[in-house]
Every structure is written in structure tokens, then in C-alpha cells.
């Protein structure tokens, strides 16, 4: 079952990603992007990362891509915005991309990840996902642990282990990202809004 689902999601994700590259119409690209990102969310669910999958759907697919499509609509000068690349470029990109894919995939897949994980586990202990008695993660119930980790407490890592210092918690990024988002929001709003006219009546 897992294999079958994986095959479906992986094929759709990769196929749609390829379609994004090959498509010339921006809105179609956005559509394929949605499909690709959505299937990736499916992969996340298969990997027992429910919360990440849901976030992917809500923020990425429902937010970011909608934003992109919105941008396409605002900048579409013709009825269907198509900016074509020449076939020569495409062939060139295809060859280079194929070689690049070969390089990355070869490098990544050549590594014996299972052996590495076993080796690391021997020295540094099991990850929280494999620990007996804490395997709710195995079923995708990571929300609470994620919440605790974002507040800095790593119950999943430290509980019942001997540690000098608490393990890495993510309180700082969780908080600092909010400032970043605020700054970025202001920046985007600044660029997007028209320059207000300097006139006595401010609310005009």
C-alpha cells in the first residue's frame, strides 16, 4: 500500500515538476506547481510528517501559489501570458539539466543511507522517532512534540536521556521569524503601494 501510494505521489510530483519546466504559459505552470507541491504534501504524509504536510498545503499551496497566480494576473499584459523560450535554449537546458540531475542523483543515491543511520545510531543513540515508548511519531503524531520543540523544550530527545545541556530547541527561530515576516511584509507592502501624494488632506 505504502509503495503504491509512494509511486503515485512521486510520479505525479516529478511529472508535474517537469511540466512546470516545459510549460510556456505561466498560469499553467502555476497549476502544475500546485499539483507538484500537493503531491509532495502527500509524500510528507507518507513519511509520517502530518503537521509538515498540512502546513505545506495551507501555506505553500493555499498561500504562496495563490500569491504567484495573483501576481500573474496583475502583470498579464495579453490575454494569456506566454513568454516563449527558443527550442534551442530548451534543448540546451534539457541536456544540462539531465547531466545535473545525473550528478546530483548519482551523488545522493550512491550513499548508503541506511548503513550511515545505523552507524550514527550506534554512537549517538536512536532518534526520537525510533525510541521505544516514544513512537507516536511513527504514526505521524508529531504535532505536540513539534510544538514543544518550537518552544525550546525537546521532550522527544531529552526525556529519559542523560544530557549535560538541553538539546537544540527552536525557540529563537520561532520568535525571530515573526520579526522577519513583519519586516518582509512591510517591505512588500511598501513596494506594492502607490506613493502617497503629499497633500494636506491625508485621507484623500
Amino acid at each position: 500500500m505504502g509503495t503504491a501510494l509512494f509511486t503515485v505521489f512521486a510520479t505525479v510530483a516529478c511529472g508535474a515538476a517537469l511540466a512546470v519546466v516545459l510549460s510556456q504559459n505561466v498560469v499553467r505552470m502555476a497549476f502544475y506547481l500546485v499539483i507538484s507541491l500537493g503531491s509532495t504534501a502527500g509524500l510528507f504524509f507518507l513519511l509520517n510528517a502530518d503537521f509538515v504536510g498540512a502546513t505545506q498545503l495551507l501555506i505553500y499551496v493555499g498561500g504562496t501559489v495563490v500569491l504567484l497566480v495573483f501576481g500573474v494576473m496583475l502583470t498579464a499584459s495579453g490575454p494569456f501570458l506566454t513568454i516563449k523560450s527558443s527550442p534551442g535554449d530548451l534543448v540546451q537546458a534539457g541536456v544540462v539539466g539531465g547531466l545535473f540531475l545525473g550528478l546530483v542523483a548519482f551523488t545522493v543515491l550512491q550513499v548508503d543511507w541506511e548503513a550511515n543511520a545505523v552507524k550514527l545510531e550506534r554512537r549517538y543513540g536512536a532518534t526520537s522517532l525510533e525510541r521505544p515508548g516514544y513512537n507516536q511519531h511513527g504514526e505521524g503524531h508529531t504535532t505536540r512534540s513539534l510544538g514543544a520543540a518550537l518552544l525550546g523544550a525537546r521532550f522527544d530527545k531529552d526525556l529519559g536521556r542523560h544530557r549535560e545541556q538541553p538539546s537544540t530547541g527552536y525557540l529563537l527561530p520561532f520568535e525571530i521569524v515573526s520579526i522577519h515576516l513583519l519586516v518582509v511584509l512591510i517591505g512588500a507592502a511598501y513596494l506594492a503601494r502607490a506613493k502617497r501624494r503629499v497633500s494636506p488632506s491625508r485621507d484623500a
Partner: peptide
Amino acid sequence: DVGLFLALAILSLEVLGII
């Protein structure tokens, strides 16, 4: 565990079809 979150997320995809 993420039922509500996911339900809202999926519901929000509707907008994409409409756009």
C-alpha cells in the same frame, strides 16, 4: 492529530480552482 488544520488547508485550496 492535525485534523482541523488540514481540513482548513484543504478547504483553502478551493480558491485556487476559482482563480
